[in-house]
Design a protein around this nucleic acid. Structure first.
Lengths: 153, 153
DNA sequence: GACGACTTTGACGTTCGCGTCAACGTCGCC
DNA sequence: GGCGACGTTGACGCGAACGTCAAAGTCGTC
């Protein structure tokens, strides 16, 4: 639908500033789809999707642009591998691409799992205390049944 | 065992620089246990545990000292609630403390669960693709059985 | 072709989380 | 009480991830 975007429109669509867009370009995360004759940056739907993905990753992983860049690079590589797929493709090539894709996917999974594991260990401790609190609560209500209220004795 | 620590010993025991220790103090995360007559910072085992906890949280949550501070504050509050517990304690007071502790614990759990959820959603996608790859691999090996190798035909 | 809205590059400012001097004082052991 | 190791405050430096302002050019419309 919507054609080429100027930087302001792109930025607004993604909820970031134009400065941020330019900074991402400087850091190699987002390249304009093209340029106008006068030299203005032009973007498209793909740019927008990528920019949104960057923000999503920032939300998930934290705003470490280097790490986001690494993840994006991995995802890009997966995309090109997918794009290379064609019907009359020699089997060995397909096997090789599949192997690479699986390796990249495994790498990404490892990154994410590692982070989850750290958080999970913290959550485990919190849940353990939670159980302890539940037990305390049970004991307290039991004792209050034994001696419901000072007045009632 | 070991008595009061000077800043250098504390920092080394925790694997950080003395600058970092002073910065944490400035940010309100770590207060010295006391001071020498001459004005040097003195720390103890509790300080060391806290400093290590700060680094642990940084590892788990990322190095946002404000958030780490918030978590520490919550944990501190839990600690003082625990410390207030005594034998001949009126039941209502115990109930109140328990309720507050459970609320704080729930808040911390919410924070952590939220982060885990984000990461988990990303992991889910990766695992989905992983399954897809496995299927591709199965199909490929099936077709290679049908026509094992070009040479064998 | 003029006008207003938008962009460009460049540069300086800001907040974090420290690293790194500098100039001075403290500790504790001989 | 002297000496070397260590600590104190203060200040500037640094890379990250942008915000902000200036001077100039571009875009599309009237």
């Amino acid at each position: 639908m919507s054609g080429p975007l100027r930087i302001g429109a792109l930025a607004e669509a993604a909820g970031v500033s134009t400065r941020t867009v330019r900074y991402y370009e400087q850091r190699g995360l987002l390249t304009p789809a093209g340029h106008s004759v006068g030299g203005e940056r032009r973007y498209d739907e793909v740019s927008l999707a990528r920019l949104r993905r960057i923000r999503e990753l920032a939300d998930i992983l934290g705003s470490d642009l280097d790490e986001i860049g690494a993840v994006l690079a991995a995802e890009d590589r997966l995309a090109t591998l997918r794009a290379r797929r064609q019907a009359g493709d020699p089997a060995p090539a397909r096997v090789a691409r599949l192997a690479e894709a699986e390796a990249i996917n495994a790498g990404l999974q490892a990154r994410v799992r590692d982070r989850i594991a750290r958080l999970q260990s913290m959550l485990d401790e919190l849940e353990a205390r939670s159980l302890y609190y539940a037990q305390m609560r049970a004991e307290l209500s039991a004792s209050s049944l034994a001696a419901p209220s000072p007045r009632q004795v």
